[in-house]
Design a protein around this nucleic acid. Structure first.
Lengths: 138, 138
DNA sequence: CCGCATCCTAGGCGATACTG
DNA sequence: CAGTATCGCCTAGGATGCGG
């Protein structure tokens, strides 16, 4: 045991907060931010309201690489809606006219994501350097 | 188009920052925080230095549910080491005696993770409420 | 004690085709 | 246009056994 064991209680509390069930908010939301598309969707929705197809197009353009599939876009939007981060409003039946916006909660999440992105970007020099060092000894 | 299109440039910059390649630091690190174990490992390493087997045991105890497999623990530690977040030091050959600690960079990452966890936890009430509402209309 | 190799399963994601 | 259904891939992660 090389680590100080005082503070185990505090640690345990934090780990419990992180969530032992897979769908506990903390774990679920962190998984969202870490997945392939959610953060990008939040960034785009941060600019205002978008309809499904537009959102798909913009994501394709701006993220370059390959487009998000319609299935996954719907899936991610559903998840975000369920957790209260985006609002979905329908006007028109055939053809459907659905638009998505961030809720206040969603704007808070976006802010968190942007903070994180900012920090990582500031550290990307050191990170790349560490990788280069590590890969060199291989 | 329901969204304001001014600011597309700024958006594009942010999305580029987020990374178009899968291993760009921003995307990679956010994926790390979102995965099953990395954040928990950071929390534990935040308390000091740990040897591999101890770390495995503590994770098992504190996260309750099932233990991390040895394979994955090694894998995650390698990734964190490669990116410069943890330092690995070996003393002794057979049996090996390996201990892991956070680097300064890793402590920074831990702080980010804790900030995020804190925010999500504060919002977990509204999130759960939103879920309940959503699931009710199903 | 630590790490690697092997095998296996669950889930994320993409592609396509179909309805209202 | 929005959503669903079906399929197939690929990767994260678990279990076990070996070697240094």
């Amino acid at each position: 045991m090389t680590a100080p064991r005082d503070g185990i209680a505090a640690l345990a509390a934090q780990m419990a907060a992180h969530g032992t069930e897979r769908d506990a908010p903390v774990r679920a939301v962190m998984a969202l931010l870490g997945d392939r598309w959610t953060t990008l969707i939040l960034l785009v929705l941060g600019m205002g309201a978008w309809r499904h197809a537009e959102l798909k197009r913009v994501l394709a353009q701006l993220s370059a690489e390959q487009a998000i599939s319609q299935r996954v876009l719907t899936l991610k939007l559903r998840t975000l809606e369920r957790d209260g981060f985006v609002a979905r409003s329908v006007t028109g039946d055939v053809p459907p006219r659905v638009s998505y916006t961030l809720t206040a909660l969603g704007q808070g999440l976006l802010a968190q994501a942007q903070g994180l992105i900012g920090w990582i970007q500031e550290q990307s020099g050191p990170i790349r350097a560490a990788r280069a060092r590590f890969d060199a000894d291989a």
